[in-house]
Amino acid sequence: MASPSAHPAHDYEPAGELKIGQVGIANLRVRTLDVARLAAEMADRVKRAPKLFARAAVIVDFGGLAATPDAASARALLDGLREAGVLPVALAWGSSDNEKLSVELGLPLLAKFRAQYEPTAGAAAGAAEAATPAARQPVAASTAPAKAEAKARPAPAGQPGLIQATPVRSGQQVYADNRDLTVLTTVGAGAEVIADGSVHIYGALRGRALAGAQGDEKARIFCRAFHAELVAIAGNYKVLEDIPKELHGKPVQVWLENEELKIAVLE
């Protein structure tokens, strides 16, 4: 009989390492179940900003509808979005009907990741979802609680801002949870910086900057050289194609005024 030491050792190392982290993902809140219109709007977004939206992962959120659609209608929408150039990867968490629909579609349900990107209660649905240049649009990293809940999480007294001393390179993401973010160098194309407070960039901004991620409409974005792929405050965003060329390369500040995103040269 072989001794225990003669048996081969078990390999307990996993074949794949799974980590849960901050995920950059868009949230499409459906307000009118018009597949052709929704697909056309998405195709226009992809056309205007392909670096941001082409093959972008999208959560489909049916919470804006009076009733959850049937599986056939939902599949038609998913097919339309894929043809438009994005990749629907999940449904937003919602009712028990929504959960049943996700099973029928073979998609997961995803709740919030990090941010609040719902439009304000007084914002018109059509304006929030319009695909015209320079329109306010909700971009989401995820589904999220109501704005009142997001604002109910005040920053701790004396909470210091997060300082990023090295460049933020393509594919990297820096997130300042419940505080401001200061980047001492540059934010490269394809990189993303996010803060629940304001974002300060002392170099060129070539990637994406999102301030007020939990719904703070008083947050601002400052940068020394503006080449941003996208800027957003409390879910209201603009892409570079929507911004006057005379602002490109300039030191600017970005803020929200009367639910409209403003960008101006720093004097």
Rank of each mutant, 00 (worst) to 15 (best):
E217Q: 13
D34W: 03
Y202A: 12
E241Y: 07
A26L: 10
E149L: 15
I201E: 08
V187M: 10
E129I: 00
R48T: 01
A123R: 07
F62H: 01
P119S: 03
A49D: 14
P14E: 04
S95K: 05
M42H: 01
L77W: 12
T132Y: 11
G106S: 07
R224H: 14
S5F: 15
W255I: 02
G24Y: 14
M42T: 07
D61P: 08
R55S: 12
I25W: 03
V239Y: 02
V139T: 04
L91M: 09
L38F: 06
T182C: 11
D11C: 14
A92P: 12
L240Y: 04
K51I: 00
A72T: 08
V187S: 04
A15E: 15
V199R: 08
D34S: 04
I221G: 10
A140Q: 14
V187H: 04
D216L: 14
A26W: 04
Q116H: 13
A191F: 10
G203R: 07
V183F: 11
E99D: 09
K51A: 05
G122Q: 03
A131C: 04
Q159D: 07
A135W: 03
V168K: 12
D196F: 12
E217P: 05
A141P: 01
A43E: 15
F62A: 01
P160Q: 06
D97C: 13
P167L: 05
N236F: 13
P251H: 01
F226Y: 15
G161I: 08
L105K: 09
A130Y: 08
G171I: 09
K238Q: 13
V60L: 14
D79K: 13
A211T: 00
P167Y: 02
H10V: 13
I194C: 07
A49W: 12
D180Q: 11
Q173T: 12
E217R: 09
Y237G: 01
G203E: 10
K218F: 06
D61C: 07
T68A: 04
K262G: 00
S102M: 05
N27W: 05
R179N: 09
Q159A: 13
G94A: 08
A234S: 10
